[in-house]
């Protein structure tokens, strides 16, 4: 696997040479720094830890300051480990977009979906509500309906889908096509939508 950490910028659409208009999400992925390299000998598995986005030294714990000093970089806000990294990289090196992906590739993108707060079952689980507005019914339009039987089992089963906090989950979208790479500005355009709000951190995996 290889990958990068990036920031979602927003959506737009571009025209292909054939004149087709395709929706795109713009992701900015400034060069990531290799902060740590894990190997079979030292950690029991191979991985690469990448850092993205600067933060102030005074806002970094002493422990992390030491970690970043070892890599010879300024403190980074976001760290992520990629198992079995496909590129040969040593600590302190930069990973750029065009090393990892090319136009036409299919990539997976993971991010944190937009938080929606406390939501009912219609929005949260796609229930259809109890039914009609008429036929004697007055207040059950978006209700969940029955949540189980009566004196046997005399309880509600665990995992029953109900209302609650919605969104804000880690979501991965698979097989998004890379439409365009603008290497000098560190931008990637992928076809379709990507989880999260504008400015949110996304993980690009290939």
């Amino acid at each position: 696997m290889s990958g990068l950490i990036g920031k979602k910028i927003g959506m737009t659409s571009i025209f292909t040479e054939a004149g087709r208009n395709i929706p795109c999400t713009v992701i900015e992925a400034k060069p990531n720094v290799v902060v740590q390299v894990k190997s079979e000998d030292s950690d029991g598995y191979t991985a690469v830890q990448l850092g993205f986005g600067d933060k102030k030294v005074k806002n970094t714990t002493k422990a992390l300051q030491g970690h970043f000093d070892k890599a010879g970089t300024s403190p980074k806000r976001h760290l992520r480990e990629f198992r079995d990294y496909a590129l040969e990289k040593s600590v302190g090196e930069l990973v750029k977009i065009d090393e990892v992906i090319a136009e036409g590739d299919f990539i997976n993108i993971a991010g944190t979906s937009k938080g929606k707060g406390f939501q009912g079952v219609v929005k949260r689980h796609g229930f259809h509500g109890v039914g009609d507005r008429t036929h004697g019914q007055h207040n059950r339009e978006r209700a969940p309906g029955s949540i189980g039987a009566a004196s046997y089992p005399a309880r509600v089963f665990k995992g029953m889908r109900m209302a609650g906090r919605t969104g804000g989950d880690r979501v991965t979208v698979k097989n998004l096509e890379v439409v365009k790479i603008i290497a000098d500005k560190n931008l990637i355009l992928v076809k379709g939508a990507v989880p999260g709000h504008k400015g949110g951190i996304v993980y690009i995996e290939k």
Binding site: I9, G10, T12, I14, F15, V26, E28, K180, I182, L187
Partner: peptide, 13 residues
Amino acid sequence: MDIIKDIHDQLTP
């Protein structure tokens, strides 16, 4: 927003 505007200028004449 500015990045998106740049993309428009660059890719969509």
